[in-house]
Amino acid sequence: MNAPANTTAGIERLLEVMRRLRDPEGGCPWDIEQDFSTIAPYTIEEAYEVADAIARQDWADLEGELGDLLLQVVYHARMAEEAGLFDFERVAHAIAEKMIARHPHVFGKAEIEDSSAQRVAWEETKAAERARKAAARGGQPSVLDDVPLVLPSLTRAEKLQKRAARAGFDWKETAPVVAKIREELDEVEQAVAAGDLPGRHEEMGDLLFAVANLARHLGVDPETALRDANRKFERRFRAVEAAVAAEGRRCEEVGLDELDRHWDEVKRRER
């Protein structure tokens, strides 16, 4: 692994590369034109590519993807420095201070028995931070504050539900959650039968939200579960396509019954 002699040298070199790229005289025209809003989608994309490399356990790829994600942090920090807001050093200092404040059992004299107690202490610290932010805005703090709008919808649904659960707004068992899913499915069917297009949209959202809630109660991450289901579907459908192609035909040329037969055969082989 070819790494810089030390971390500081590597960071300084990256910061200098970004300064050159954004230099109005001699920099890259594309990089100079960008702003926070145009770069934000790339930041999200790079975070997903990091997660993808981890899911594939491709550690060589992960090294590169982490570099791409770090570049995004440097990019935003550079634009903020140009605008007189803050710089990379302040970003790094702030996160270090935050981690120290949130881990008094490591950097202070507090004692925490186990990881469960640590999670409780972590959430209490974050709740206090949200209260301070709300007070600074002159508003009423909410347990739902600071759940990012740009999160994938299933992930955001789960986080909203977790926050509400901490305030006592939650079922204690899974049975009523399952009943809620059936209720929402009935309402979807009613909207379909009535030809209510806006109603379909709303009721499907409620159904998906209820399904995310069941996943949370079962200890399943809904976003990861759906990602794995997507991957499984893709793998199986590609196998169906290959089986049909081996017969000298295309999927569009065969009926659903035959496609289902191939699908069942693929599932049987996987078992």
Rank of each mutant, 00 (worst) to 15 (best):
A243H: 12
T38E: 02
E270K: 03
H262K: 00
M18T: 14
V106E: 04
V211P: 04
I39C: 07
P141Y: 00
E49Q: 13
P4I: 03
I32D: 10
P198M: 03
Y42P: 00
Q161L: 10
A47S: 07
E89N: 12
D68V: 00
G67M: 14
H217F: 02
Q72F: 01
R250E: 15
A60L: 07
A175M: 03
A127H: 00
R137Y: 10
G219N: 11
E25G: 06
V266C: 10
V177I: 13
N2C: 11
V74R: 06
F107N: 06
E258R: 12
G67L: 05
H105P: 01
V143K: 09
A92E: 06
I11Y: 07
A127G: 05
P104V: 13
A229F: 08
R90L: 05
E183A: 12
W30Y: 13
E97L: 10
V254G: 05
P152K: 09
L144S: 08
T125M: 01
R119K: 11
L256P: 15
H201T: 11
E252K: 15
A246T: 05
R235E: 03
R130H: 10
D228Q: 04
R231M: 07
R19L: 06
Y48K: 11
R130Q: 09
G139P: 00
V211N: 13
L15R: 14
A40R: 11
F237A: 15
K133G: 04
F233P: 15
A242M: 07
F233Q: 11
G84S: 02
V266G: 09
A134D: 01
T8G: 12
G138K: 08
F169I: 04
D87N: 02
H76A: 12
A164L: 02
L15C: 08
A135E: 09
S37Y: 03
D35Y: 05
Y42R: 14
E65N: 06
L70A: 12
G67K: 03
L62Q: 03
I112E: 00
E183F: 11
Q57A: 11
M79G: 13
V147N: 04
G64L: 01
L207I: 06
A127K: 11
P198Q: 05
D228K: 15
H93D: 01
G10M: 14
A51Y: 05
I112Y: 05
A165S: 04
E129Y: 01
F233L: 13
A92S: 06
I39W: 12
S153E: 07
F107V: 00
D264R: 15
E46A: 06
A210H: 04
R130L: 04
N6E: 13
A110E: 10
A128V: 00
M18S: 08
R200I: 02
L62K: 11
L259S: 06
R268L: 04
E158Y: 01
V50I: 01
I181G: 01
K159H: 06
M204W: 03
R163G: 00
E158H: 04
E253W: 08
A9L: 10
L14S: 04
K172N: 05
A242V: 03
A110W: 06
G26T: 00
G84H: 12
R78I: 09
N230P: 08
E81Y: 05
V254T: 01
R261M: 13
L70F: 08
E81S: 11
R216E: 14
D228W: 01
E270G: 04
R261F: 03
D35P: 08
